[in-house]
Amino acid sequence: MTDLGWVPDGIDTNVPNVARTYDYLLGGAHNLAVDRELGDRVLDALPGARRMARINRSFLRRAVTHLVASGVDQFLDLGSGIPTAGNVHEVATRARVAYVDSEPVAVAHARLLLADVDRATAVQADLRDPDDVLSRPEVADLLDFDRPIGLLLLLALHFVPDSDDPWGVVARYRDRLAPGSHLVVTHATADRRTRAMRDVADSTARTRERLHYRTRAEVTRLFAGFDLLEPGVTGFALWRPEGAGDISADADDNAVAYAGVGVKPTAHPTPDHRARGTLT
């Protein structure tokens, strides 16, 4: 970050904030009037926004539950926002969880919510700088990088512009993860409801975060070096839904964001090897 201002914008209560707006859409009260105004504008452009926030949260629950069942007991949640009810440490009730966000109020809030939770921590850092994130004592002391880790990037990478190379960022985290680690991604797209999504992007322009929608192929590329689990990269509601609340009756609602879960293979072959198939 090359912010030369002294007071972080996140503390400026006149500027809406993505994490708090998301909380508003989820029905929480961890938000300010400016955040609710922004949330209402998003709702104008995308009337199903509350549903979509809920769907993302449901996906989180399903994905984390799956990872726990696969033996993952530590999580690095990048761009975690405000870890309100149903967040990772509540779903994975015995796992260690490091929440990372660049937004000071979200982190201060997370620390408040996690005050009594030993196995979870919140760090203010920029997810685009893996070396910094991974060298933070809170992260390095809590997580064991020699064992599988669940790396969560939920509705986070669409705030990273192409110029910051989100694929390279993910690859640098991947290189530090032990085999058996999982990558979990949800990422907004304008492949459907293109106009409405543009309106949403315009309405969020006042925040410091700009939305960068990506296509399914672009989202799939984030999983380079991971083996994608079934059903691959798909609409976020369509990833292994379990019940009525996981999915919307409106097909477009189910696909405003892509979701995918990949696992880092034991001996990770290069894409070339895999392309040639069964050489081993």
Partner: peptide
């Protein structure tokens, strides 16, 4: 709601103080 608003206020205060 009041509890969450209270928490948010404290968070803002903390973030401000930290800054």
């Amino acid at each position: 709601t009041l509890a969450q608003q209270e928490q948010l206020g404290r968070s803002l205060h903390r973030a401000m103080r930290q800054a």
